[in-house]
Amino acid sequence: MSGLIERLPPLRWTAALLRRLGLRGRSVVIAVPFLWLLVFFLVPFLVVAKISLSEAAIARPPFTPLLEWDGLRAIVTLNFGNFAFLFDDPLYLNAYVSSLRIAFVSAVITLFVGYPIAYYIARSPEGRRSILLTLVILPFWTSFLLRVYAWQGFLRSNGVINNFLLWAGIIDQPLVMLQTNFAVYLGIVYTYLPFMILPLYANLVKLDESLLEASADLGGRPAATFFHVTLPLSMPGVIAGFMLVFVPAIGEFVIPELLGGPNTLMIGRVLWNEFFSNRDWPVASAVAIAMLVILVVPIMILRNAQAKTEES
């Protein structure tokens, strides 16, 4: 590697420059994702934070500037009214609570569906595991949007499921499934299932088989072995999978929009409406910031769980 650097002049010059700046290889490697996050995450976040503190205006862009020159000094106008407004109108609080609830219930269902699948794959013979994992990831090859649209085709009153049930004579009137919370749960569980299965699988596949044998040897029946050994040891995977479903599901917009009904209240939809229908960017930004604050807690839990996994 160092040979390559020595031979190519541009690389050599860059390396010399970095050295002069006191940067070693390690810091350069870390700098790449650091810069990425800085440019594409922190800066946009600060922009949104800035907008959330301004007032809506009929202008382009549709909000007042924070910083103004009156010729002599800079005047900073901070408007916390947008955040206060979130507490005034129960819509926002309801939307947050409803989003948290839908995301939580979906994550729980996903966990119950995903755990057996991950367990089964992890316990399969090594050759079959990669095939099964590919099957789990396979839906990603089709656009997420298309797949959610496809569910519309399944769930609507003259859709595949209803037609089949009518044909089989199980029902005599089509079931209302589309535009219900049921469809939203189904959509979230379906979409996020791989995010549950993969971390769980990664954890379960490492589980030392001799621990299961030790438990059986000490008198543990299969159920006892599962609850006393497998489950506690897979907790980091459970938490990681749960958070990977729970966190993005809170802000989910496409699924409630396409599958949910008018009374499916989720913060992502509220945000979208504030932004595009109301064109109230400051309130929309305040909604986004508030959502982020709410998400900090579960994200901390996730990070903690990951740190614990690395420790053991």
């Binding site: 030392d208 001799s210 621990l211 044998e213 030790a214 438990s215 050994v229 506690p232 040891l233 053991s312």
Partner: peptide, 9 residues
Amino acid sequence: FQSYALFPH
């Protein structure tokens, strides 16, 4: 067990 198989948790 050869690996002792102690429950790490």
